[in-house]
């Protein structure tokens, strides 16, 4: 009998297959969510809607906790489709015996993170399950935003690919925080609300083609999805991708590739070459975008491949994450 394995939830190839075979095929409708958020028109307003569940382990990690992640993650999914995040709902599934003080700390960070993006939490739900039926606490958040500036998604040959900072931080921070690796590291999760940064970038350029936040599956999987969805070929320059030394060190040791590790406070943008500098300047002027870099170029507009040019001058093709053993990261 076919069963769900942990690999179905890692954002890679199997997860993609599950979504296509089960969910998309049965929920099929005219405007299913193809990107981070669905956009739909209700009356005079164009709205963006998204939902996400958070099962990160451990609940507290360097740089954040499950609450901060649950708010930032959903706000980011709205922000990257060009929406102004407005309201959030949240659902809590709490395991019997969970310390109320911990819950308060988590909810407090949710409130702070929402305030950061001027978002109101308007509805919620609480369920308590028996001890053993959940691992401490799971949170679901649903967000609604108003699309002020829909992105045209018209990717052209010669466009630049920008990432707002170093990749793989969240993935490594969580791996280390789980304490199973016997590693000590100073890497903090990059978990943060990107709306303020993104809104500044949108002011700097009217022609940002597309944005995504590279969470599960990492930068590589996100860009592979873009290449496939839009039939474009992107060539990344390996030596221009910002990666922290500690992240690279941990990856070497554990056999992970930082390009496939989750980020929770990074945005990747496809922008016209001529707007590249203006956007970079704006991103770099903000603390969460100080390491922003142009990491690649849209090469041809028909092949749908993600390529990586190594410092030695060879290129290799990057694929979706396939069957890596990663613990629950978001």
């Amino acid at each position: 009998m076919e069963r769900i394995t942990l690999a179905h939830g890692d954002g890679g190839e199997l997860a993609h297959k599950l979504i296509t075979d089960v969910f998309v095929s049965m929920f099929r409708n005219d405007h299913y969510a193809q990107f981070d958020s669905a956009t739909l028109t209700l009356g005079a307003h164009e709205l963006a809607v998204t939902t996400d569940s958070f099962v990160v382990k451990p609940l507290f990690f360097p740089g954040g906790n499950i609450g901060k992640l649950a708010v930032a993650g959903t706000i980011n999914d709205l922000a990257v489709v060009g929406a102004v995040p407005k309201v959030l709902t949240c659902g809590f599934i709490i395991e019997e015996g969970f310390p109320i003080q911990d819950l308060k700390t988590i909810v407090q960070s949710m409130a702070e993170e929402a305030k950061e993006a001027n978002v109101t939490i308007v509805a919620g739900d609480t369920k308590v399950v028996e001890r053993g039926s959940a691992d401490g606490l799971y949170i679901n958040t649903t967000g609604i935003g108003v699309v002020s500036r829909p992105l045209d998604r018209k990717i052209c040959e010669g466009d630049s690919v920008i990432v707002s900072g170093s990749v793989g931080d969240h993935g490594v921070a969580i791996l280390v925080a789980r304490g199973e690796l016997g590693l000590v590291s100073t890497v903090e999760s990059d978990c943060t609300t990107l709306y303020p940064l993104i809104s500044k970038a949108l002011k700097a350029s009217e022609h940002i083609r597309l944005m995504r936040d590279p969470t599960r599956g990492g930068l590589a999987t996100t860009l592979v999805e873009i290449c496939e969805d839009f039939g474009v070929t992107i060539e990344l320059e390996e030596d221009r991708i910002p990666i922290k030394k500690e992240v690279e060190g941990a990856c070497e040791l554990l056999g992970f590739d930082p390009l496939y590790l989750a980020n929770e406070g990074k945005v990747v943008m496809i922008v016209p070459k001529e707007d590249e500098q203006a956007i970079l300047d704006v991103l770099r002027s903000q603390p969460e975008g100080k390491d922003a870099a142009v990491i690649g170029t849209v090469r041809a507009t028909n092949k749908g491949q993600l390529l990586l040019r190594t410092p030695l001058g060879t290129t290799r093709r990057l694929y979706r994450l396939t069957g890596l053993m990663l613990p629950r990261i978001c």
Partner: peptide
């Protein structure tokens, strides 16, 4: 890959070695 704290001189060295 570029370390945000580092400079990329060793990439140049790699290319020389490759030659």
């Amino acid at each position: 890959m570029l370390d945000v704290m580092d400079n990329p001189t060793h990439f140049a060295l790699s290319r020389t070695l490759l030659q």
